[in-house]
Design a binder for these strands. Structure first.
Length: 291
DNA sequence: AGTACTACCCGAACGC
DNA sequence: TGCGTTCGGGTAGTAC
């Protein structure tokens, strides 16, 4: 399949992330920092109440008005907006995305929260599936909640011994374990499939049977896979920052995800799709044998 | 405590 | 301009 055809699978409006995991969220954060830092929120319009998880809608609106965006960062898959005296946390879930505009525009059908800035610019939260959530906290409260998120993939405390301890006495599969955001934060369904392929692990391997050596391999592979994706996002983002501020994952760089029926890039066996914990799971049955 | 299941959503894909 | 059904996926909540 040509590159052109692959690009064509993305939605019509620019290149937009589907299933944003850590690298995509990181790219969104970097882009937003370029576009909306230091802007003051003059008003906010909410078109789908359930996006606002906390506090109650009216309290959320009242608290956010007049706040300035001081900093934007990321923790796992959470986007953190440090406002003047509040912390706005945003999770994109499946298809959440942000559009930035210089002027007033007619909103897209799927834009559900619109922040209007004092300089007439706007930040639109757009989410086809309406799965995403926003949380507004006092700073101390936000820190408390974020402390419960698992280790970042590059945290110096992320070691095989840590994973061994977390896996002890647990009977879940390695796939479920790596998707557990309280262990490592940021891995989603696409990259977990890739990480397990690159480490030659069957996704249904029971996690407490995994060796220290293998956990070390998982850590280095996770870091490499996520870093590569961030780097790709970083290279594609430049041409889009002026318009929508979004970018796409280059799916042609994936080895197994969404590639059932294709040959394994290592051994040419046919990649299969199975279901693990109700998630679509792609693997090479030859490279990833069940132990 | 750990595990499993479900709700939340709706566009795409599929079956007829 | 076909219509009805099924699927998927991250996290929170619930049940055991």
């Amino acid at each position: 399949m040509s590159l052109y055809n692959q690009m064509d699978r993305f939605p019509k409006i620019g290149m937009v992330f589907r299933m944003p995991e850590l690298p995509e969220v990181e790219t969104v954060v970097r882009t937003l920092k370029k576009l909306v830092l230091n802007k003051e929120i003059e008003s906010v319009d909410v078109y789908w109440d359930n996006i606002i998880a906390t506090p109650q809608l009216e309290a959320f609106k009242q608290a956010v008005i007049g706040q300035k965006i001081i900093d934007i960062s990321r923790r796992g898959k959470y986007i953190i907006f440090n406002l003047t005296s509040k912390t706005l946390i945003s999770h994109l879930r499946m298809e959440g995305k942000y559009f930035v505009y210089d002027n007033d525009v007619k909103k897209d059908k799927h834009s559900h929260v619109i922040f209007k800035f004092s300089d007439n610019g706007q930040l639109h939260y757009n989410d086809t599936r309406k799965f995403g959530k926003m949380y507004l906290y006092d700073e101390s409260e936000a820190l408390k909640i974020l402390a419960n998120v698992g280790l970042e993939p590059w945290d110096k405390n992320l070691k095989a011994t840590y994973l061994k301890r977390k896996a002890k006495n647990r009977r879940i599969t390695i796939k479920q374990f790596l998707l557990d955001q309280s262990v490592i934060s940021g891995i989603g369904n696409i990259y977990v499939n890739e990480i397990l392929f690159l480490t030659n692990l069957h996704p249904e391997t029971i996690v407490n049977t995994i060796s220290t050596l293998k956990f070390n391999q998982i850590i280095t592979t996770t870091q490499a896979v996520l870093q590569e994706a961030i780097d790709q996002g970083g290279t594609t983002i430049r041409s889009y920052t002026s318009s929508l501020g979004v970018s796409g994952l280059f799916q042609q760089s994936l080895n197994v995800h969404n590639l059932a029926g294709s040959p394994c890039p290592v051994c040419s066996s046919e990649i299969i799709k199975i279901t693990v914990a109700q998630r679509g799971t792609y693997l090479c049955p030859s490279c990833q044998r069940k132990k």
